[in-house]
C-alpha cells in the first residue's frame, strides 16, 4: 500500500549508520519547515519529485482497498517540483493571507522505518504529528503517515526526496485549509 517505487523492489534493512543519516535528514527537513526556511526546504527535493496527499474515505470492509484515493482520484496535494516552488513563492509574497501572518508549526516525526531498495534508493515510512497554531487561538493538528523515496546525493545533507506520499488519519479534514507543508 505504501510502495512508491514503480517496479517491485527487494527490500532490505539498513545498517545503524544509514538509519542515523536518514533520521538526521528527516529531522533537518522538519526543522527547515518549522523555521519557515522554505527555499532551503525546496532544495531537498529532486527535480522529478511527486508530492502527493490523496484523500481518504470510509468504506465497508469489502471495499477497504478503496479507502485511500488512487492516482486518478481526489487529493489535497498532487504537486511537482515546479508547483512546490510556486507555493514557496506564494508564501514569500507577503500576501498569502492564510499564512500571513504565518502559522506556527511544530512537527514530530517518529516511528522512522527505512528500507533499502535494490535500486539503491531508500523507502522511508514515518509517522507524523503536526501542530499548526494560527493567529490568536486557532490550531489544527494533522496526524498521519508519510512514505518517502530518498536518493543519496553527494552534497549535504546527503539525500533528496524523490517521492512523498502523505496519508492523513482523517477522512473529513478538520481544518479550514492545509496552507502548510506536511
Amino acid at each position: 500500500m505504501s510502495k512508491l517505487a514503480a517496479t517491485p523492489h527487494t527490500r532490505t534493512g539498513v545498517d545503524v549508520e544509514t538509519r542515523y543519516e536518514i533520521e538526521r535528514f528527516l529531522y533537518l527537513e522538519a526543522e527547515l519547515l518549522d523555521d519557515q526556511r522554505f527555499d532551503e526546504w525546496l532544495e531537498l527535493f529532486d527535480d522529478d519529485v511527486h508530492y502527493w496527499l490523496p484523500t481518504r474515505m470510509t468504506r465497508t470492509v469489502r471495499e477497504r482497498d478503496l479507502e485511500v484515493a488512487g492516482r486518478d482520484g481526489a487529493a489535497f496535494f498532487d504537486d511537482d517540483k515546479a508547483f512546490l516552488a510556486g507555493r514557496v513563492r506564494r508564501l514569500a509574497s507577503g500576501r498569502s493571507w492564510s499564512e500571513e501572518p504565518p502559522s506556527r508549526t511544530r512537527r514530530l516525526i517518529t516511528n522512522i522505518r527505512p528500507v533499502r531498495l535494490d535500486s539503491g534508493e531508500f523507502e522511508v515510512r514515518v509517522n507524523f504529528h503536526v501542530l499548526r497554531s494560527r493567529a490568536e487561538r486557532h490550531h489544527d493538528t494533522f496526524f498521519g503517515e508519510r512514505t518517502d523515496l530518498l536518493r543519496r546525493v553527494p552534497q549535504e545533507p546527503g539525500f533528496h526526496i524523490a517521492r512523498r506520499r502523505i496519508v492523513l488519519d482523517t477522512t473529513t479534514l478538520l481544518a479550514p485549509s492545509i496552507s502548510i507543508f506536511l
Binding site: D72, A74, F77, G86, A175, P176, S177
Partner: peptide, 27 residues
C-alpha cells in the same frame, strides 16, 4: 484529464492556492 485534475487540486481544494485564503476570511 490529468491536467484538469492536478490544476484543480492545486488551486481549488483545501490546500489550493486560491481556496486556502477563502477559509481564512470566513473564519
Amino acid at each position: 484529464k490529468q491536467a484538469v485534475r492536478t490544476s484543480t487540486i492545486r488551486t481549488f481544494s483545501a490546500a489550493g492556492v486560491f481556496e486556502t485564503d477563502d477559509g481564512e476570511n470566513w473564519t
